[in-house]
Write a protein that binds this DNA or RNA. Structure first.
Lengths: 216, 216
DNA sequence: AAGCATATGTGAAATATTTCTCAAACTGTA
DNA sequence: TACAGTTTGAGAAATATTTCACATATGCTT
């Protein structure tokens, strides 16, 4: 059990564990084991135990883990024992879908600002939230001390928007723009690009359907 | 240069390289190097060379890589020298945004079917595509030999919908539902859950803003 | 044509990550 | 209380992945 220098890949799995544990709570399950959790997630039980061991001892030999307790611990580790305000940059289809997405609320996040540079979009409401002009990004983010933003704009504007929000104090960016962003060291970035995911699967999809298109 | 047993993590990086290379083409850049590409992506040049070396020798010493040529090669490796039809399951906000997303067309994919179980949605058109009833999933996917699906429905329906599309012959699933899916070995799954990404970043966001809320 | 600068591809070395294994601890049962 | 069945946590071993380092090849300049 070390305290810092936790491998990044370990951190990335904790939210997945948390998601599965929350599901168990919904099903009124009180206790689980690394074996059961691993089976549900397609991960080895040893890996789950090893991951958790970086942060402390949360289980009990012979019994396993109290689901509620482990959830509490994971939320604490991930700094989720508070609510994070999130800004959405861009009110197109993706920004729209994100802003209306109901899956944030009970998992630690709330979209509390949305911006667009298109004057015809400014002032419209999405999910009760008024779209604000892009020119106000710095002012609003600083005022409200918003540190997380989701980028939902075309690739060609993504870098300059990133520079803006970083200047405004944002330290975590989830980008839907299909481009690698340049940020200072203190800023974390994650990417969501459905196409790269699809492309990493087609590699394994040998084109066996050639068989179907052959002449009789 | 081996041929099979390519590490999965290598495959997952190829689409990212491809994305950056396409960007270079747009900027009329003819040649690049592992060093330049790496810098653009925040990856070491050695890693890029090693990754590519699994598949052949695509560069020239002293010069680097012809951008167009490398793109052609990567597309071939990833089975992207064809167009893949994709089905969208669910026509809510996410399914809607995916179906209208313009980023698929020039990267190897086309959404050609969308389904919903809500009768009030069936028959409506999204991006010129008519929403079909969920009951027709198996029939339509089999008829058209569609092998890739994107899941955009609530978690509670995700597993049963997965069983259905797998039965219909789908071999690659990109799921937006926040739940781990159970699939047979021959089916690949990737997940997009914005919340897990956000949660993996909040870990690094020490709550220094406590300083700001302290009494004067 | 020679010399310099650049850049690949690749074994070897260094790191990182996962899996194995098992002592120790807990529960339930007789 | 003793015993059987579970399950954790963690050191050791096994794998996987990344980085290093360099021979070799190319282009450019003089």
């Amino acid at each position: 059990m070390s305290v810092d220098n936790i491998p990044k890949i370990v951190i990335s799995r904790l939210p997945v564990y948390l998601r599965a544990l929350n599901r168990m709570v919904q099903n009124s399950q009180l206790v689980t084991s690394s074996h059961e959790l691993g089976k549900a997630l397609g991960i080895s039980s040893a890996q789950i135990r090893k991951d958790l061991s970086h942060f402390g001892e949360f289980g009990k030999q012979g019994t396993g883990y109290q689901v509620e307790f482990l959830i509490t611990q994971l939320r604490q580790i991930l700094n989720l024992d508070r609510e994070w305000e999130v800004a959405v940059i861009g009110s197109g289809d993706i920004g729209h879908a994100i802003t209306r997405y109901q899956g944030f609320a009970d998992r630690g996040f709330r979209v509390t600002a949305i911006f667009d540079s298109d004057p015809s979009k400014v002032g419209t409401k999405i999910n009760g939230l008024e779209v604000q002009p892009a020119d106000d990004i710095i002012k609003v983010l600083r005022e409200r001390n918003i540190q997380i933003a989701m980028l939902a704009i075309p690739a060609e504007y993504a870098q300059s928007a990133t520079d803006t929000i970083v200047e405004a104090g944002v330290r975590a960016i989830l980008s839907y723009a299909p481009i690698s962003l340049n940020v200072p060291d203190h800023v974390k970035v994650r990417y969501i690009d459905p196409v790269t995911h699809l492309q990493s699967m087609t590699f394994y999809l040998s084109t066996e359907d050639d068989l179907l298109t052959q002449p009789l």
